[in-house]
């Protein structure tokens, strides 16, 4: 099964949201759950990034790459980076992988590699 991270599109006005919210930020119509899930594109440009060295206990690594990526449809997402020498503006593409494991739970998310 192909894994996806979804954006949520307002059924009234078409506005995309990521992450999910319960009321559309554009048309503001309070109609709960009137959104269509739309898979986020995997390709985009790196907007900003960091390597984190002080991590919460769930991460048993010395450092973790994180970044904000502007996807090709203009949406932005936060994700992990597996890029040796990241540069602002570089082309990246994502795979959906396990980003955090704690006890019995696994969380999937976007992990970006050089395009």
């Amino acid at each position: 099964m192909a894994l996806e991270i979804f954006a949520y599109q307002c059924k009234k006005c078409g506005q995309l949201h990521y992450p999910y919210r319960m009321v559309c930020k554009k048309c503001g119509k309070n109609e709960h759950n009137e959104f269509d899930p739309v898979p986020l594109p995997k390709e985009g440009k790196l907007l900003t990034f960091t390597n984190v060295y002080a991590l919460p206990p769930d991460f048993n690594v010395a450092k973790l790459g994180l970044g904000i990526v502007e996807l090709k449809n203009g949406m932005r997402v936060t994700g992990q980076l597996k890029i040796p020498h990241p540069k602002i503006g570089m082309e990246v593409s994502a795979k959906i992988e396990v980003v955090r494991e704690s006890e019995y739970s696994k969380n999937y998310g976007m992990v970006f590699y050089p395009a």
């Binding site: 900003t48 990034f49 984190v52 002080a54 997402v77 994700g79 992990q80 980003v99 955090r100």
Partner: peptide, 18 residues
């Protein structure tokens, strides 16, 4: 959308700062 990736406050400040 953030916490699961390992986002911490210093990392947000760092991405902002860059």
């Amino acid at each position: 959308a953030e916490y699961v990736y390992g986002v911490t406050l210093p990392s947000q400040a760092a991405m902002f700062a860059r």
